[in-house]
Amino acid sequence: MSAPVPPVLEARDLARSFGGVKAVDGASFSVEAGKLVALIGPNGAGKTTCFNMLNGQIKPDRGEVLLAGQPITGLAPRKIWRLGVGRTFQITATFASMTVRENVQMALISHAGKSWRLFGRADQRRLGPADALLAQVGMAEQAEHACGVLAYGDLKRVELAVALANEPKLLLMDEPTAGMAPQERIALMALTARIARQRGIAVLFTEHDMDVVFAHADRVLVLDRGRLIASGTSAEVRSNPQVRAVYLGSGVTSGGH
């Protein structure tokens, strides 16, 4: 299965402990361009730690992170972003005192390296690209609205547009649909999948909603107590007895999977 081109993201034997507790203990996986890979597991399994090692917020004790074959292990989050990694957060994080368009403009201005300019109106810069991104996520009509008054689902779309502003190779999404209504969840992930395939972006996301995972993930990674216990297609993971025992359960309360 070795590809001639290195995968967009490759994690090799990542490990990290906190005060003697092994949060992540030797996780290796990769994500290819245009693919959606889900990272699931019980609370405390190490998903967040894993994510934070990929985006640079935490330095791993051991192991390597490669972005398109280049090592990025231990770089600052800002540097990793500059190399082409976009992020969305579990709880939406937007600039509430700016309009929807200004949020995207800010990301574009930063991407262009102009965020230290002391003069010239910021809201006149990079209007075209900002509107193009907003159109892509279906938020063009609300460009003038303040982010502080948007509905939750719309905020998630703005976040997606902001995350796309640096033309990322890799998108890291931490529980992208948390707090959304079921139908909105499917719509947001369908949109993400479409954009990822169009632009050849690799997407790694964590998620608790199994409907979303099984509907959209090309591959599912299951983490338990810091170790990867399963990896495969939705069907394979679903029927894995170990995964059922530690995570999925009988399926009565989660939709009968």
């Binding site: 600039f95 005192s97 700016m98 200004e102 403009q105 800010m106 201005i109 930063s110 102009k114 965020s115 230290w116 300019r117 002391l118 003069f119 010239g120 109106r121 910021a122 809201d123 810069r125």
Partner: peptide, 10 residues
Amino acid sequence: FAPFGYALRA
């Protein structure tokens, strides 16, 4: 109102 001010506010 310049990019710096926006970035600060961000």
